[in-house]
Amino acid sequence: MTTANIEERVIELLVDITGEEEIGDYREDDLFEEDVLDSLGAIELLVRIKEEFGVSIAPTELEREEMNSVNKIIDQVQQRL
């Protein structure tokens, strides 16, 4: 899986979960601050990452600050692949 490919698939996942079509354009924004993600969104994201990439991240493994933007989420997935 190439880097660009992973990025694209993570963004697709995020669009699906949050319903924000333009989420890929704001890759540094804090998704919790902007009310785009909440507790349920976060857990949905972890469940979907596991389904899509086979990467398992426990709910308390990461602090919110470690996965609060599109880029950080992509990073976390890449590190584990």
Binding site: L40, I43, V47
Partner: peptide
């Protein structure tokens, strides 16, 4: 972290409810 997220995670994986809002 230890009740809500665990419950939601199980519910989403096993598709217990029709929508994520119901799960929440």
């Amino acid at each position: 972290d230890f009740v809500f997220m665990r419950f939601s995670s199980a519910a989403l994986q096993r598709k217990w409810f029709s929508s994520s809002v119901t799960t929440a």
